[in-house]
Design a protein around this nucleic acid. Structure first.
Lengths: 243, 243
DNA sequence: AAACACGGTTCTATCTAACAGAACTTTTGC
DNA sequence: GCAAAAGTTCTGTTAGATAGAACCGTGTTT
């Protein structure tokens, strides 16, 4: 074994060890990586090169990795195709995307929709602000659930939320995850699934002053309420049209 | 073995069989699938349920699948994160996206950037037309290389292209891949890699008349040339600024 | 020109991980 | 309530996967 240890283990968790290893190869790619050498992958995963060579043949066949002539490995296009399948399997884009676009137009800040997945929140949809200074989150990014306005919404409204919870909306954060980023978020409900996500505005702290938040808040609340209604859910004091 | 046979085989191709199997589980999800049952996955992959149950534990741990309380499986968020990593690893978005947006604004049709990956072409970036009637391709989609204007560009200009090839631009297609879709495409070059992709306009045949194509052609050619220059490549008769 | 370092590739003895598929349990539909 | 279908558990067998040494090719240094 080379000096780094694989982070995955099947000892107590079930699963198939060689699948774990293969996916750890894919998972060792990071933002900013253009390509990785065999040696670099070995260093990052702790797997023997001979093991990697065999595992990567399967990954290449499936389109998860591409090997180039200089022997380097790059992530492959099948990941993007599957990522799009995942995003569309949520069946939310037609509802969420227009609302994000409008919020971005109205407020000038980046508008995102986060979903909870286990102990994380996933940026499922995003419309970046057109301003040069903005926070950088990408669709697909996985962020911690215990930090940021969206994380607080996804935690606090998991059980539908009380009147006091709603009265506190939008939930705000100042530099919790990224020291210079502010955010405001509200919940989104559907009829079938209850809380399905958090609608969020985010940007640099300098643009999240009290005055600016006072302007954004009613727009965000209205958008969250309207989107919930579109999906068959509703905020309190606004009965569902189906009720 | 259940009645369907797995499509992947390692008999002559190398690789690790259980990794092939695991990835065939992920790969059996199709557009329109919201969730799949264990039985449905077994039918699509030809794997025993007991085998699937073990393989999916690894896939769930890695975030590629999510198992819900009703026992169904859905694609997981890690795919979207990795898909985004792949897209950004191309290091093209900052150059390509603005050009696609402008082309879409100027022409009203969907603008895409396709890359070749083996025997396929991948839609790496896309700006959908805002018109209600438009063709439906998504970023990440994999399309055949031997059909469509973009496919012809990626084939014909692989070796830089001759003067006659450039004179024929933009390459056109009418209902080759989708019977009601028209497309026009030009190549994009970079200094380091030569042909890196095809810039494409596409839409319903009814909007790809001779007159309409005559309007689009110079806009598309200018965009392809400009984008190539931005990336250090160039079209003939337009020497590289670095030369 | 020779030696060395590094990255990538091949090979194989060993062992255990993975599978097939039966049996069992739970859920669903009639 | 019962049958069918879906999901889950179990285990004997063996073939597949690994560890890691040996080898090869390329680039650098002396």
């Amino acid at each position: 074994m080379t000096d780094a240890k694989p982070t995955t283990t099947t000892a107590s968790a079930g699963g198939v060890e060689s699948v774990d290893r293969a996916l750890s190869i894919v998972g060792c790619f990071q933002a900013g990586d253009h390509a990785l050498s065999l040696t670099e992958i070995a260093a990052r995963t702790g797997l023997y090169k001979s093991t990697i060579l065999r595992l990567t043949v399967s990954l290449e066949k499936a389109g998860y990795l591409v090997r180039h002539q200089d022997k380097s490995y790059r992530l492959g296009p099948e990941l993007m195709r599957l990522g799009g399948l995942y995003q569309r399997s949520l069946r939310l884009e037609d509802h969420v995307r227009p609302v994000l676009r409008q919020l971005m137009r109205e407020t000038g800040e980046s508008a995102s929709f986060f979903r909870r997945e286990g102990a994380w929140r996933i940026c499922a949809f995003r419309e970046d602000s057109t301003q040069a200074i903005r926070d950088h989150v990408h669709e697909g990014d996985r962020l911690p659930l215990d930090r940021g306005a969206a994380g607080h919404v996804l935690t606090r409204f998991a059980g539908q939320g009380s009147a006091a919870d709603f009265a506190a909306l939008p939930l705000l954060s100042f530099g919790e995850r990224e020291s210079e980023t502010g955010a405001a978020a509200v919940p989104v409900f559907s009829q079938r699934d209850g809380l399905i996500g958090a609608l969020t505005l985010s940007g640099p702290l300098t643009r999240f002053t009290g005055e600016r938040v006072a302007v954004m808040a009613p727009l965000l609340l209205a958008a969250g309420s309207r989107l919930s209604e579109t999906l068959g859910g509703h905020y309190p004091d606004q009965p569902s049209p189906c009720a």
